[in-house]
Amino acid sequence: MTKNIDFKINEFKDLNKYPKELFYRGNIELLKKQKVSIVGTRKPISYTKNLTYTISSLLSSRDICIVSGGAMGVDAIAHQGAKPNNTICVLANGLNIRYPKVNKNLLESIESQGLLLSSYKDDTLATRYSFVLRNELVVALSDILIIMQADENSGSIRSLEYALKMNKKIYTIAHRMEDNKGLIPYIKKGLIEVIYDVNEFVNSIKDKDEIIENDEILDYLKTNPTYEDAISKYQDKIFEYELNSIFKVENGICKVIY
């Protein structure tokens, strides 16, 4: 049964416009977990399929909840890798509608074991605009966005643009140039980090609560040092804190955002 969320979701506080209503089916407690959003093309190559499942599965095994949009391709594989009980699916239509139909069984499994979210009432059909809003919510729910593979001018590029505005960390996997054309310009500008070692990447993601407890580095960052000074003082630890969105850099100055 569809229920209305009667509280503000903290991750949505920075949206330009908070949804008028939010609905859910499933385990609302998943919203409290550390989350990573994974999105990408509806027509992934085999290499992308394999790595999407692997990354999603490894993150989930570390109790990190996987967020995606329930679409064919990368989205569905990300949900499957996480297993239904540790994934959040944001839909662009009413929660009583199984769309796309090819994912009917997957969506039913997520409803019974994981969490379905939507800003649309039951019986509302998906539209071009509702997919755009769905993408924004998927990005907002996590500190990290992984775009597994993206075509030019695709929905994944819109998700990327949202992530940049929200100061999210953005990743992709190492591809042949012709297989990831949509992301190449952003990689060249240093706006997206490429994952070359999956295990190293997964192991680098830690719970914020684990990082900040009795933390002298966090205390140091609260003094707003320059990024250059912070790197000089704490070296690789600073990269880890940046990866986990503990702080951001503005005009060369470290600013805690947790």
Rank of each mutant, 00 (worst) to 15 (best):
T2G: 07
T2L: 15
D6G: 04
F7K: 15
I9D: 04
F12Q: 06
K13T: 09
K13E: 14
K32F: 07
G40R: 00
R42D: 02
P44Q: 08
I45Y: 10
S46N: 07
Y47Q: 06
T48A: 15
K49M: 13
Y53W: 12
S56P: 00
L59W: 03
S61D: 04
S61C: 08
I64E: 01
C65S: 09
G69N: 07
A71T: 03
A76S: 13
I77C: 06
K83N: 12
P84E: 13
N85T: 02
N85R: 06
N86G: 04
V90F: 08
L91V: 03
L91E: 01
L91F: 04
G94C: 13
R98I: 10
Y99I: 05
P100L: 12
P100G: 12
N103Y: 03
L106M: 13
I110K: 01
Q113K: 14
L116R: 04
D123P: 02
T124N: 10
T127N: 06
Y129N: 09
V132M: 14
L133G: 01
A140P: 03
S142Q: 05
D143N: 14
I144D: 00
I147C: 03
Q149I: 01
Q149S: 08
A150R: 01
N153H: 14
G155K: 01
G155N: 08
I157A: 07
Y162S: 05
K165Q: 11
K168V: 12
K169V: 06
A174S: 11
H175W: 10
R176D: 07
M177A: 14
M177Q: 05
Y186V: 05
Y186I: 04
I187H: 04
I187T: 00
G190E: 13
I192E: 01
D197I: 03
E210K: 15
E210A: 11
I212R: 05
E216P: 00
E216I: 13
I217Q: 05
D219S: 14
K222F: 03
K222D: 04
N224I: 09
P225M: 15
T226P: 05
D229L: 15
F239W: 08
F239K: 09
L243C: 08
S245D: 14
F247A: 08
N251R: 03
G252K: 05
K255N: 10
I257R: 11
Y258Q: 03
